[in-house]
Amino acid sequence: MARERRSARRPAAKVSRLRKKTAKVPPQQAPGPIEPVVRDGLRGTPLRDAHVQGGMVSLERWEPKLEYRWDTGVAIGRFLEGLREGKILGVRCDRCHRTVTPPRAFCEWCFKPMDAWVELADAGTINTFSICFITWDMQPLEVPQIPAVIEIDGTSPRVGFLHLIGALRAHTVDGIRKEIRVGQRVRAVWKPAAERTGAITDILHFTPA
């Protein structure tokens, strides 16, 4: 289902960009017949993926075609419009004295409607990050993907969103760890205005400030 949702909402662009960098998997050899074997006194029937793919194993197949169009509503809708304009918007709760992004219509702490919209800086601090040499669907990457939680400037502590760190010089773990760290200051790198669609991907990535 994750695959279906992703492709429904964000056709191809990012996925294919990642795929170009994937190493080729060697072609599979033709599978032999399915036969029981006895090895070290243990009996079993070895199966390979090619047996399954080749229809040699009896199984049921079904590909779900799930598609959704979510109403973004007041808070997310305005946030996405802000991104289209190159702005990161947040909301403020005067009772709990905190400013948060992504925005929400109500404060989940005091359960009252939020008090005001605020425009935030397009810069922040890395709360935590990972260095991934495998994509979300297990394809190997030569240039790693670096997911990070960014605390946006002007928000209360521990408020921000998941994004990517990009445009680093290094491509190895050791090299990347010399360029970024927890607490690293970063700034947003935006798509050109004409290419923005009102999506979190309107920010291409964050990069060390």
């Binding site: 979510w70 109403d71 973004t72 509503g73 007041v74 808070a75 219509a105 359960f111």
Partner: peptide, 16 residues
């Protein structure tokens, strides 16, 4: 249809 509210905002209204 309810394009003006997200599911969260709709539930918040009912819960309130």
């Amino acid at each position: 249809v309810s394009p003006d509210l997200s599911f969260r905002e709709m539930i918040f209204e009912a819960a309130t």
